[in-house]
Simulated assay, not measured.
Amino acid sequence: MKGILLISHGKLAEGMKDTLELFSGRIEQFDALSLSAGQEIFDFRKKLSQKIDSLDKGEGVVIFCDLAFGTPANIAAKMLTNDEYKSRIQIITGMNLPIILEYSQLRSKDVDFNEMISVGKDGIINLNERLNI
């Protein structure tokens, strides 16, 4: 089973983790890491490495980031240039609750990440329009 790590600016990752556990209960190999205002980049990268190492039980870690090309995602992406992490991490940006909930239920090696991303996209709707209000 792959680990799941949520990373974000501010406390979004912790909030997503808390919300997901409200739906699913405690989830194995699941954690969150947030970049705080004023936090040193080196410190965040070190904590990111530690979280990946603790979550990876041999099958890797899927990292969900709040924002493509934001600092947390960029730091994670830079790890893809390191042979130690390149084969161990999969990075998905634009995390939302539907995509994390979907992945936490699947968690197999054979996940089609493009299909999973569609679940996240499909969770974004104009509810007024959908309800004809």
Rank of each mutant, 00 (worst) to 15 (best):
N114K: 15
K11H: 12
M79H: 08
F69M: 11
G60P: 06
I100L: 13
S87N: 13
P72G: 01
N96I: 04
F23T: 12
F42T: 13
I63G: 06
L35S: 06
S104R: 02
G94S: 10
F44K: 08
V119A: 07
D56M: 07
V111S: 02
I52R: 00
I124C: 13
D18L: 04
G60I: 07
F23P: 06
K51P: 10
R107D: 10
K47E: 15
I27K: 10
S104H: 00
K51V: 09
E129D: 13
K109Y: 04
N132D: 12
Y103C: 11
L6P: 02
G70F: 05
P72Q: 04
D56Q: 04
A77V: 07
K47Q: 15
I7G: 07
L67N: 12
I27N: 05
R45H: 02
S118D: 13
M16Q: 08
E59Y: 00
Q29S: 14
V111W: 03
I4M: 12
L20H: 02
M79S: 14
Q29I: 01
L97H: 03
N114H: 10
P98H: 09
I99F: 03
S87G: 05
N132T: 09
F44C: 05
I99Q: 03
L5A: 08
K11S: 10
D122M: 14
M16S: 04
V111M: 06
T19W: 07
L35K: 11
S34E: 08
L6I: 15
K121P: 08
L20A: 12
L12C: 01
K46D: 14
P98D: 13
S104C: 13
T93H: 03
E14R: 03
F113H: 04
S36L: 13
K46L: 14
